[in-house]
């Protein structure tokens, strides 16, 4: 017969109880992952003094993270710009003059959509790929082998990926911004009856350089988050193929959550506190 103590300590049962414990465990895992990422970030900073030795590795990672992500970013941004034009036109119709369509598209793309959507699609692709690669290296003892040869994995594997993320995300975002505005421009001309002259005049109307710079700074931070969370999940991989799969999932989840949370923090900091005056 179960006594009251046993009942008090019984695990929650049923769909609802199970869901709560899954959410709780997921949140705890995410916090642990972020803590590990913080420690890894400190080790990356310490390894930075050996950057010149890692230049060829950095260039290779810039190619893999940046250049190879370009087709995905191009498709995403062209259609994002196009759909922004359609949606903005629909919402502004009969209330706002057509000239403001250019303003709305330019502002929403450079401040928010360009950096965030680029980070989310690149984050999905790159952080999973980094986590799977380093995770496989971890479970097949390749990282131990590197350590045993006195080659620091943080310097050889992590730092080049982190720097490549920091450098390439703003560059990809520039492409995304141009293509998204271009997509919006084409749709505005062809199907929304907004002339090129009106669209460009709208863009110029409230053009501020700090909008672009703020967006690119966000992309810089997102690039660091993507690489760091990919590397953290990869290095913490345990087990075999299942462990590698879990690492890739953890990397994508952590990257996406942190990108969205830091987007809010950075938006408040940049556009309310710093540029808000």
């Amino acid at each position: 017969m179960r006594n009251s103590s046993a009942i008090a300590h019984a695990k929650p049962r049923g769909l609802l109880g199970g869901s709560f414990s899954t959410v709780g465990r997921g949140a705890l895992d995410l916090i642990t992952e972020i803590g590990a990422a913080g420690l890894l970030l400190w080790r990356i900073l310490l390894a930075m003094r050996k950057l010149p030795r890692s230049m060829p590795l950095l260039i290779e990672q810039m190619r893999r993270i940046g250049v190879e992500s370009l087709p995905l970013v191009m498709i995403t941004s062209i259609f994002t710009g196009a759909v922004t034009a359609v949606q903005a036109a629909y919402q502004l119709k009969e209330f706002v003059p057509k000239i403001y369509l250019g303003t709305a598209i330019y502002k929403s793309v450079v401040i928010e959509l360009g950096p965030v959507l680029t980070a989310l699609v690149v984050g999905g692709r790159v952080s999973a790929s980094i986590a799977a690669e380093l995770g496989t290296m971890r479970v097949t003892e390749q990282i131990d082998a590197m350590d045993a040869m006195a080659i620091e994995p943080v310097r050889y594997l992590v730092m080049p990926r982190m720097l490549a993320g920091l450098i390439m995300l703003p560059i990809l975002t520039v492409f995304a911004d141009v293509l998204a505005i271009g997509g919006g421009f084409v749709v505005a001309n062809l199907s929304l009856d907004v002339s090129p002259k009106t669209f460009i005049a709208g863009m110029k109307l409230f053009f501020f350089a700090h909008d672009v710079l703020g967006g690119l700074f966000k992309a810089f931070v997102f690039g660091g988050i993507i690489a760091l969370m990919g590397c953290t999940a990869g290095l913490r991989t345990v087990g075999g193929a299942v462990g590698v799969g879990r690492a890739a999932t953890r990397a994508v989840v952590a990257s996406c959550v942190l990108i969205l949370v830091s987007d809010y923090v950075l938006a408040t900091l940049l556009f309310k506190v710093i540029f808000g005056e």
Partner: peptide, 10 residues
């Protein structure tokens, strides 16, 4: 060190 699974960098 020679690792159990060789641990060659693939």
């Amino acid at each position: 060190m020679v690792f159990q699974g060789a641990a060659l960098f693939d």
